[in-house]
Simulated assay, not measured.
Amino acid sequence: MKKAHLVAQGSLPVNPTHRTVIEGDGLPIGPDSLIVTRLASYEVDGRGENAGPTFSTFSGGPDVLFTAADFAAVFSGAGDVGNDWKNGTRLIASGSGPPVSGEGSSSQDTATVHVLDILDHYVAGQTVPGEQVESAGALSGVDVTDNRHPKTVSTENPVPEQLEAITLIEGGGEPVRDGDRIVVQFAGVTWTTGEVFGSTWKWNGRPSAYSIGTGQILPGWDEALPGVPPAAGSC
């Protein structure tokens, strides 16, 4: 897609709205997907003018991740969004903003306008491809097949004295580095009780994104995941 460039014309939008300006021809997104987007935001005033983007990832920086629910919450009034969009779709979304005053002029209403390109998405329940090996040792019994919630280790197994990590399916992407953002499916289980304390499968299988090595996630992830190759083609 070409770089986003907004030319403001006409009156400001009265209510939040969105429209598709480029129809995508990739895979449809569907509910509970995690959507990878490129985003530029503009502020336009009542004269139909703008001073360029206030935020943009078109010239660099990490892509912006949304769910359809996120989009509906941020761009209120957008309605039932996301399910029919496809990779390659470009959207414009707008909403009214607070009044601002310019030198030598009276107070003007403003609107924030967003240009959003859908680059890719991760579907609900998506897991990495490949043949899974048997887990062994204290971590024996871990199994994730047929996109189902993982079968996890038995609580009768002894608790490891230190961090243990095993690879069930070897990825083909570039190894994870500190500071990278990863998209994951996960289930977290309390060893002694077997209680699931966190799981993307409990979120309708919607993948989640986290930064590695920043203290954003469990310390074991920050320790174990750097150097691990993700599935090929991951963002």
Rank of each mutant, 00 (worst) to 15 (best):
G125R: 02
W221R: 00
V100W: 10
F197M: 03
G194F: 06
V81H: 03
I166V: 12
P31G: 05
S105K: 06
L34Y: 07
E195S: 10
V64L: 04
T190L: 15
G188D: 09
A72G: 03
G173K: 00
T214H: 09
K151D: 13
G102R: 13
L12E: 04
H114R: 05
T192I: 04
I118E: 13
G46L: 02
V74D: 14
C235M: 14
P13W: 07
G137W: 02
Q216D: 15
D80N: 14
A51H: 08
E164F: 14
H5A: 15
V64E: 02
T67R: 03
E223G: 12
A4T: 13
R47I: 10
G215P: 01
E134P: 05
P160L: 06
T37M: 04
P13F: 04
F55R: 06
G188E: 07
L119Q: 05
R19P: 14
I182S: 10
E156I: 11
G60V: 00
F55C: 13
H18D: 05
G61V: 07
G215W: 00
I212C: 00
T57L: 08
G10N: 01
T112E: 11
G125N: 02
S11P: 07
T152V: 15
S94T: 02
A231S: 11
W85A: 05
R47F: 11
T127W: 03
V196A: 11
L119D: 15
S94M: 03
W85S: 09
F75E: 12
G198P: 05
K3A: 10
L27T: 11
S94Q: 09
V21Q: 08
R47N: 15
Q216C: 13
W221A: 07
E170T: 03
P219K: 00
T112A: 08
G198M: 04
L27W: 05
G24I: 02
V176L: 02
G198A: 12
P16D: 10
S199L: 10
S101F: 13
H18Q: 09
G194H: 04
T190M: 03
G61W: 03
T190F: 08
G198Q: 02
I169V: 13
S56G: 09
Y122M: 04
F71Q: 11
V184Q: 01
T155W: 06
V100T: 13
V74H: 09
A224I: 06
Q9W: 15
A4M: 05
A224Q: 02
V176P: 00
E43C: 12
H149K: 15
R206G: 12
D180A: 00
P53F: 07
E161I: 09
L91A: 02
G227V: 01
G205V: 06
V100A: 13
H121S: 13
F75K: 02
V183R: 10
S135F: 12
A124H: 04
D117N: 01
L119A: 09
T127N: 13
V153D: 07
A4H: 10
P98T: 05
R19W: 14
V189H: 12
P129C: 14
W201A: 06
G227C: 02
E223Q: 12
L39W: 01
P150R: 01
E43F: 11
V189F: 07
G213L: 01
V128W: 10
D45Q: 02
S154R: 08
N15K: 13
P219D: 06
L34K: 05
R177T: 08
G227R: 00
I35A: 08
N83M: 11
K86V: 05
